[in-house]
Structures are given as C-alpha cells and as structure tokens.
Design a protein around this nucleic acid. Sequence first.
DNA 1: GTCCAGGGCCTAC
DNA 2: GTAGGCCATGGA
Length: 222
Amino acid sequence: MATPIQIYHALQSYYGSRDWWPAETPFEVVIGAILTQNTNWNNVETAITSLRQANTLTINAIMQLSQQELEQLIRPSGFFRQKAERLQLFCHYIQQHYQGCLDNFLEREMTLVRDELLTLKGVGPETADSILLYAGHHPSFVVDSYTMRLFKRLGVLTGTEKYPQVRALFMAQLPVDVQLYNEYHALIVNHCKEFCRKQPQCNNCPCADICLEPNRNIDKLP
DNA sequence: GTCCAGGGCCTAC
DNA sequence: GTAGGCCATGGA
C-alpha cells in the first residue's frame, strides 16, 4: 500500500505546487475556516466578498457590527446565524485576551494555541488546525472530509478512524514541515474537487484506478 | 425537486 | 462516549 509521503509526491508531481489558502491575511483565514464549515467554498467566497465590500474584514469591524448585520453579510455561506455568533465570539476573545492582535494569539507554542482554539465555541479540530497551519504557520496537519474520503479509497484509512487518530497518523509518517502540510492539504482538496466530488465511489472518475486499487501504481495519478 | 458542500454543537440514550 | 438531529444557502 502506498504511504502518505508517496501519495504526497504523486499528487504533487501531477498537480504541481499549490501554495495555498485562498486568503489575503491571517484573519481572513480565520473567517474562511469558520464560514466553510460544511459549506461549499463558492458560497464562502460570496460571503467574504460582501464582507470585503463592507470593509469589515478586521477584528474591530466584525465586533462593531450588530449580530444581525453580520448575519446578512455572511448569509450566502449558510448556517449564517451560528456562524455570525461564532465569528463575533472569536473576535471578542482576541480583543479581550490579546489586545485584538491575532498574531499575539497565534505566535506561541502550537499545542498551547491549539488547546485554546478548541475551547472556543464553533472551533472544532479541523477549524483549529486550519487556523494553526494557514494563519499561524504551525505544523498542524489538517484533516477534512476530503482527506477521509480519498485515503479511505486509497486503503490508508478504514473509514472508522476518528479525527485525532487520522491527524496523528499523518503527523507520525510525515516530516514536521509547515510547507509540506500546507501543500498536502491543498493537493487533497484540489484532487477531490476535480475528480472525486459527490461520488461515494470512484466509478466513472479519472482517479478510479488509484482510488479503488490500493496497490496500483501511484505514478499513474489521477 | 433532490443532493451535496473544506463542521461543530447539543441532546438523548 | 456516541449516534442522531440540527443549523441554511446556492449550485449541479
């Protein structure tokens, strides 16, 4: 069976470097990480665009909006009531404990930041790891539904593993490298969006031969 | 009209 | 501790 590092190299040689998270600032990463929860990224982009047009892509601006105003701005991203609450709670937390400076919060020891992120309402393991990796540049591997889906197909996962197990597996088998984790997650998302979308199995999918046959030649991606 | 998308919270056993 | 319901929009 192919190992995570072999699959990484296969994906990278097929797709090239991604150098990822579609955001201009660390705070935008936080916004995107919360808004994308169980939501198509296109809808998230629409919401972020409306926040940008309203000039509200800062911690202060988000806090100054009423919850109802924020709900309307992020409405296209779905679950807008709970996401508005979560965004404002995050901003208030940074304001209260880190003088409103996201860098002060993120630029500390990784497990410390992670544990603190996980205490915040609406920040679960995937959201926390996305913020750590893409906003804080910490080597924290992000596991998402694409990761679960692809690596189950590849025979690396059985599909019964929980989030902490999967994250630990990847982090044990990969070098501790922010850029590699960044690229890898980006490549997984790219590959699944391109070829594995919505399909419970890879029938009629260009990557069917690698997804359905764990021992096939990984040089033949997709 | 139906299904799905880059989760996480809450409640009931 | 864990399975199931709930949150909501927009595109395919």
